[in-house]
């Protein structure tokens, strides 16, 4: 029996919002440590890795490890039926072929349950090596989303170059070119407004704008986003999910042809 109860259904709604553009379906791997998801988009250029720890749930029971193949379009439709302040419970019998979502209104006057068929998805798991990144940038998530959106109007690629002074985002195309430079903030009163750069060595990498824009769908989950870069390895874009976990997006850099 698997059962996971979350008082804030908005977390699960935002997680679906953050992955449904990139992935049509994904396997939720549930164990007693929590729920993990790892899936590449159809082009195999980007990957989503999500982790929701069991201790972040209000109630969590997982008698035996269970992998639930979910159609994310269907799951999104079901989660749209939950109000933000509803309590959501996901539950499935062992080796079940369906999963049930129960939404309870705060005053318990309305209880809804939705049963969704599970899919048999072949699991192609990628080994992601632990990496000491040359540059780790933390900046306001809203700022990053704004930069990706503005620059994607200029070209299909964004060049991110990171030095100890700060980080520069550039794009060029038919209409012209654009550069956005963010300096490291010195002393900001609020942590979530800071721009910080931890640099071992300067890095300049080129990425496809459309994937960066898909990643920023996770902006509602966290005030801060973290970009980790090293020469010639995939970019990591990480959003924390409250105190319960994180979503990490990996994107292969473009290379000189």
């Amino acid at each position: 029996m698997f059962e996971a109860r979350l008082v804030q259904s908005s977390i699960l709604k935002k997680v679906l919002e953050a992955i449904k553009d990139l992935l049509n379906e994904a396997t939720f791997d549930c164990s007693d440590s929590g729920i993990q998801l790892q899936a590449m988009d159809n082009s195999h250029v980007s990957l989503v890795s999500m982790n929701l720890r069991s201790d972040g749930f209000d109630k969590y029971r997982c008698d035996r490890n269970i992998s639930m193949g979910m159609n994310l379009g269907s799951m999104t439709k079901i989660l749209k039926c939950a109000a933000n302040e509803d309590v959501v419970t996901m539950k499935a019998q062992d080796n079940a072929d369906t999963v049930t979502f129960v939404f309870e209104s705060p005053n318990q006057e309305k209880v809804s349950d939705y049963e969704m068929k599970l899919m048999n998805l072949d699991q192609e798991h990628l080994g992601i090596p632990e990496t000491e990144y040359a540059c780790v940038v933390r900046l306001p998530a809203g700022e990053f989303a704004r930069i990706c959106r503005d620059l994607s109007q200029f070209g299909e690629s964004v060049v991110i170059s990171c030095t100890k002074e700060g980080v520069k985002f550039s794009s060029a195309g038919d209409i012209g070119s654009a550069n956005i430079k963010l300096a490291q903030t010195s002393n900001v009163d609020k942590e979530e407004l800071a721009v910080t750069v931890e640099m071992q060595e300067p890095v300049t990498l080129t990425f496809a704008s459309r994937y960066l824009n898909s990643f920023t769908k996770a902006t509602s989950l966290s005030n801060v986003v973290q970009l980790s870069m090293s020469p010639d390895v995939p970019l990591v874009v990480e959003y924390r999910i409250g105190e319960i976990g994180h979503i990490r997006y990996y994107l292969a850099p473009k290379i000189e042809d």
Partner: peptide
Amino acid sequence: KKAQPKLTNFFCKG
């Protein structure tokens, strides 16, 4: 022109 490699060029399966 920049080429777009796949993630499987960087991460191994399994």
